[in-house]
Design a binder for these strands. Sequence first.
DNA 1: ATTAGCACTCTTTCGGTTAAAGTGCTAAGT
DNA 2: ACTTAGCACTTTAACCGAAAGAGTGCTAAT
Lengths: 352, 352
Amino acid sequence: MNLDDRKRKILSSVVEDYIVSAEPVGSKTLVDKYHLEYSSATIRNEMKFLEECGYLEQPHVSAGRIPSTKGYRYYVDNLMKEQNLSMIDINYINNNITGYGDTEELLKQAADVVSKLLIRPTVLTVQSEDLLENIKIVKISDKLLLIILMSQNGTVKDCIAKLTDSVPEEIIEQLTLVLNQNLSGTPLEKLHVALECVIAKELKAFSFVLSQICESIKYEMSKDSITTNTNVESILNLPEFADIEKAKNFVNILSTKNIIDSTLDMAKDGGLGIIIGSENNEVLLKDVSIISLNVETKDKHIGKLVVVSPKRIDYSKTVSTLKYINNKFKNLFLNQNLENSKYKKDNKESEG
Amino acid sequence: MNLDDRKRKILSSVVEDYIVSAEPVGSKTLVDKYHLEYSSATIRNEMKFLEECGYLEQPHVSAGRIPSTKGYRYYVDNLMKEQNLSMIDINYINNNITGYGDTEELLKQAADVVSKLLIRPTVLTVQSEDLLENIKIVKISDKLLLIILMSQNGTVKDCIAKLTDSVPEEIIEQLTLVLNQNLSGTPLEKLHVALECVIAKELKAFSFVLSQICESIKYEMSKDSITTNTNVESILNLPEFADIEKAKNFVNILSTKNIIDSTLDMAKDGGLGIIIGSENNEVLLKDVSIISLNVETKDKHIGKLVVVSPKRIDYSKTVSTLKYINNKFKNLFLNQNLENSKYKKDNKESEG
DNA sequence: ATTAGCACTCTTTCGGTTAAAGTGCTAAGT
DNA sequence: ACTTAGCACTTTAACCGAAAGAGTGCTAAT
């Protein structure tokens, strides 16, 4: 549907006013605030037209208009301008994504930063297709082993195995070899299956030590890979949650695993996805927008970062922030890639 | 102040009814529900007396009574009976404190379990007096080191140091020695200071590798050692939070670091502490009760586990649950202690 | 010492009125 | 043909007073 300039301007103003005010926008407000060169009566006619086309809604007859899902969609696709982040925001991002830690740690920092800047909850998952690169086992005391799992995307996980008996170093070395032979290249999400096979296949040779190691790994990997950052104190301040029932609904959505999973699934491959309100399949999400970023380095997806919000959110700032974050990751991994490729070479040498 | 049996029975009934109903308790309710052998008029007289003594409060003249801080205190000290946990709760605890992981992981599991069972937020901190036992450094790739910190209480922390240049194994071994010489026995909370000294003292000898390692450790140790488990979806259902402003206040308290710190400080040494409402020094906590457990193994405090709640909470169940948890920890560490002592011996051998 | 009974107080609820906001439409103006 | 002033209309929000409900404190009787 093509809209003429005046209609576009009006729609855009309604959306932008509503995004900050959270109040239905009336014709008079528009004329006063946005310096439209027509009378309120003309604006009213246009708004009526926009409502008939489904871009605007009226909570009741004596209220102003609010954007419908279709209206937000038109705004996002056609009207919204990208904005430059403020220096304050840029500094905040740069100071709080430190570069310390592994990939997962960096993603967590990013999710936290986004949540703070946008005052919205975020959901994070590291890319499940990440493959296991290498396992190391370090004996940290007589009966305690530290098992270190390194993934190809640069995530390092570790866990502790408690043994019932002491095990000599050479056995540990052998076990490490066995585990690497069987598990290298396995997708992290399928590790527990692969572990079962290892236990079944090799158990006799190495008795229960291997089994104890595998149980520890399984426990570590069974921890939920999805992190939600709820940020309650600030979302309770959003005007949509003046009604506590609405707040409960929203918080419930955040803690409903299925729904969160499905928001992650909906995150389109390739960059940035926006799903607005009833565009979601899930009926519980009809007033919720999902803005997702597939965090990418030069050649890999390393995770999904999702902003979950009431439909009313500053889409423009959200998009700008997420794009900035993604660029930041590309830069962070530019240097590291070099290391990574060296690392692979090194590793083969030391293994061979 | 001594109260006769009837008064004690009435006070106890008011507290217990209010704990579940969250509504002021009237004389008629008491007679009907608790089978008191007196008329409502008698009960009224007694309640008036209890109010004059400060054990009960009346929100307004035509309402029933609710317990005052003093009333809760009397109940907790004199009237409350310990209860046996239900089999369901016991099973839940045993299934969810698995024994996998290090001390900190176990404490986190415990905090999570308590939060779920009591439907209240919990705050957790590992004992800050925990001393560093030993540092290990593992080269996991050309320019990546994994640094492993083991504490005397059995907590294992690790972090990754990214180097700008490759470092040979023998240097790493020397560095490990240096770090252990300088840092073993240091309280974890003072590690960052000690690290500064190490950097200052040894920097010249080992160039910036040591500095990069130290920075990584410092970053890891700077992560907040306090975990709060807010559990929003359920606390919003508490009747005290029907008024969203109250909910915001409470959530704000949970996210105010100073206040959380002070609740942790107030946790009395030696077992279990209960601080009710205005007994707290902090005025913001006047409607909040803090129930804290110093988690102990046979001979050590390993952490503090704190339940933060509106004054209205089932004190009896809370106490029983926390005591059960503490016993569980004592048992868990009974076996491990043997390991631990061996570990220390072992360690000295391998270092000597 | 206990209790029935009642007057009293305060809160909650409900219906009805009024004020405010913003519309849609009509008729007039450009 | 487009724009706009003006007004009737609808709906919500705010306010008010009356009535109902809850639970008390006190008095007088047991």
